[in-house]
């Protein structure tokens, strides 16, 4: 019951992940971070097979950062470039004997075009660029909420409000406590953690 959520707006991308590390019905950890920052304006959230997730995420993180070091600080991978790279790596692994079983959301903000980006990738490396996204059970509960309330030009406040609506719905409907969401926002200023006020 891992939850991954992503919402874009006028000048930001929000990416949220549940805090619970689960194994079957047991909660092993209540403050698990299922996100990695890749470079100054991109991050990814991941869910899937334990072990595969962190291994793949850190492999990607290391390679994106290596690219950053090899190149001029003003010439960094854009969010679409990062997403394409990740998809290619995941697609390559798919045809191997031990494929990574990882689902991803890639959030970013392109500082050259001032556009937010959100990519949805599943464990088969199917990629879609979409205005809002979810993985796992959150898809069934949250996508309908976002279908109704989301607009491409929403403000950060509205984005956070939508995130709260999704969180509250999940708390209400999911049978297991996912220990809340860690929310990160990507804007022109970079990646920042945001506290989502607790449910009333």
């Amino acid at each position: 019951m891992e939850v991954l959520l992503g919402i874009t707006g006028k000048d930001f991308t929000l990416v949220a992940a549940s805090n619970a590390a689960m194994r079957g019905v047991t909660i092993l950890k209540a403050e698990d971070d299922k996100t990695r920052t890749l470079n100054s304006h991109t991050m990814m959230a991941y869910s899937g097979e334990a072990g595969d997730t962190v291994q793949f995420a850190e492999y990607i993180q290391a390679n994106v950062q290596l690219y950053g070091m090899r190149n001029n600080a003003n010439w960094q991978l854009s969010p679409p470039a990062v997403a394409s790279f990740i998809r290619q790596e995941l697609a390559r692994s798919l045809r191997s004997r031990n494929a990574y079983h990882v689902n991803l959301l890639i959030g970013g903000f392109d500082t050259t075009t001032n556009k937010p980006h959100l990519y949805w990738l599943d464990h088969l490396a199917s990629q879609a660029s979409i205005p809002y996204a979810a993985h796992g059970y959150a898809q069934y509960y949250c996508l309908s909420i976002l279908d109704k309330h989301h607009h491409p030009g929403i403000s950060l406040e509205k984005g956070l409000e939508l995130m709260r609506m999704c969180r509250d719905e999940l708390v209400k409907r999911l049978p297991i406590d996912f220990k809340g969401l860690s929310v990160k926002v990507i804007t022109a200023k970079g990646v920042q953690k945001i506290e989502l006020e607790t449910a009333t």
Partner: peptide
């Protein structure tokens, strides 16, 4: 067909 292969 399979979306991942469509993109690939």
């Amino acid at each position: 067909g399979l979306a991942t292969d469509v993109t690939t």
